[in-house]
Design a protein around this nucleic acid. Sequence first.
DNA 1: GATGAATGAGTTTTCATTCAT
DNA 2: AATGAATGAAAACTCATTCAT
Lengths: 197, 197, 197, 197
Amino acid sequence: MEEKESRKNDKYEKILEAAIKTFSKYGYYKSTVSQIAREAGVADGTIYLYFKNKDDILKNFFNYKAREVFSRFKEEVKTGKDALDKLRRLVTCHLRAFESNREMAIVYEVEARRRRHLIDDKIREMSNMYQELVKEIVELGQKENTIRKDLSVPLVKQLMVGAIDEVITSWLYSSKKYSLSSMAEPLIDLIVKGIGK
Amino acid sequence: MEEKESRKNDKYEKILEAAIKTFSKYGYYKSTVSQIAREAGVADGTIYLYFKNKDDILKNFFNYKAREVFSRFKEEVKTGKDALDKLRRLVTCHLRAFESNREMAIVYEVEARRRRHLIDDKIREMSNMYQELVKEIVELGQKENTIRKDLSVPLVKQLMVGAIDEVITSWLYSSKKYSLSSMAEPLIDLIVKGIGK
Amino acid sequence: MEEKESRKNDKYEKILEAAIKTFSKYGYYKSTVSQIAREAGVADGTIYLYFKNKDDILKNFFNYKAREVFSRFKEEVKTGKDALDKLRRLVTCHLRAFESNREMAIVYEVEARRRRHLIDDKIREMSNMYQELVKEIVELGQKENTIRKDLSVPLVKQLMVGAIDEVITSWLYSSKKYSLSSMAEPLIDLIVKGIGK
Amino acid sequence: MEEKESRKNDKYEKILEAAIKTFSKYGYYKSTVSQIAREAGVADGTIYLYFKNKDDILKNFFNYKAREVFSRFKEEVKTGKDALDKLRRLVTCHLRAFESNREMAIVYEVEARRRRHLIDDKIREMSNMYQELVKEIVELGQKENTIRKDLSVPLVKQLMVGAIDEVITSWLYSSKKYSLSSMAEPLIDLIVKGIGK
DNA sequence: GATGAATGAGTTTTCATTCAT
DNA sequence: AATGAATGAAAACTCATTCAT
């Protein structure tokens, strides 16, 4: 039973990994179900035993793959001892996660973040979850008096999320001569202190 | 003669506007050429008199529509009397432009920014052009001593571009109870001073 | 009036020549009306002032261009003093005509001869006209006692027409290191004496 | 297993037969893929499981259908005991084959023979193969002293191929009151002895 | 569960033809 | 007569999805 369960999981994951690989290479619309099946080493029809349809594969990417990564973010934030430490840990962990899984990063950045309105509620919720983390940090920092009080929490959220995404995207399409995680410290410094003198 | 010229332009623009409207509503891939034609009030075949193919419509969006907006940015930056003024003008102008043309904003954010590698050189060039503006401002500010010197110009570029895009995207998918341009001042403040105390 | 007539003819012919050139290069179906118009130096619509439709251009090729050539054949046959002389003249004239107008030859061989059933009666009639010439020669030769009597006239017709066409077609697609008209004498010799000893 | 194999072949052949039927009726260009699918009793898309595209169907006709016929010709020529016997067998076999498969005959004569330059190498090779047979016979006859030596082999080839094709084509578009194979003997007689007295 | 052949709706694109100027 | 922009019907082809084995 246990074994059967894990077998099942095995195929579910294999298809999901294949999909990520394919989506990251050709984009969602130009990827065909057959391509994914071939990449996963299963028959076309098998995909429909694990997913409702093509769209559902993308949705599952978030529920399964991304949720896994995101929960690590949560963990890191929980571990941090104060707001700035939490912030440092979140950004570092985020960049490291995306650096070590480039294909996932591409699918997330290209196919999901920008399509919030088109996609499923689950995905939006996923996206919001991240933003909640940021909110948490900001509010804690304000209590701790390490973060300015005269600022709109949602805006800070947007600044951080936007900056991090842009750093990731730039790295994705660069020739990758630098490591993504090496950007963490300078980025945090910038977010905290600003560009002004 | 004058009239004929404007008529001709008329149809090119009409199709382009219809395409932007359609792309912004359904996304590039889910929009059909027939839909665009109907929206533009022309026959399907007419589209191919003005554009090589569906892809070419998107490319033209940048060359024609976006380039127009971007050159306004350039103008604003040129007008600013110092780095911080230039910065303020750029951000304000950017938010205003996207606020007044929501459909263009969606197509730009969703279909282009995230697809840099897939799309035409012209578009990449377009995208770079913006980043050059930011670079210009930063370097001027460093000379004027209003912007910190211990920072990587590309990273600042990423922070700013990312933050602005995120602010726009959030607004696009919000219920729009606030004006986008009202975000300019607080955003600039944040970028300049940071979140720290 | 006369001049206007000839002007008209001028454009009619120009289009026809352009069509032959185009058809010979790309084949009837892959040639577009626009291509023909461009080649002829007229507007697309102008073609429809001189021809009912695309098909009609092909039909006119036979009525006008080919008929002209074919009437020369008739002339030659009339001039010949006996059956074998007529035969020699016909074959020689035929090969010369097609040699000097390769494009017409291609259109005739490829687009017409093999499509007898698909095409207009006029074309079939055209095609038959040639075969009538052969018949005339054969029957005269039989009277003159220079051509065997124990043979079916239609079959001889087929032998000759088939052989001549094949010689032309082979030449058309050869590297043309030999002249087509040089094949006349050997071919006639073969038709008259056969291959047997 | 055996059955599955034959089933598979079944559909490939069914489509091919349907295509030949359709091509012979309307010509290659006026035949649509949908027509062929309907005729074959399959869905449009199914065609693309067995053939790369419409063109590929025509190419397969030669590789599969015609090659089969042509190899029978080879067999017959091999069987003949001397040049004239080989000749008789070839011509008779050729006419019989085309008589019993009229649709194939039309496609071969109309769509292929005249398009040698446009079509696939395979087809040209096919066409050459036949001409090689003729060459073989002629050269043997010259050794045996039953065929004249003062003649160009390529020209004889053209005479024969041209004549046979013409006899077939004439029959195809006739009301078919005579059998095609009945033309074999008179045709051979003509080729061997010529029309002269 | 797994397969993959078959489906057919849906899409892009072409091009002969028309018609207002 | 001449133009050429506009039309829209028609065609090839793709691919997500189904279902008999």
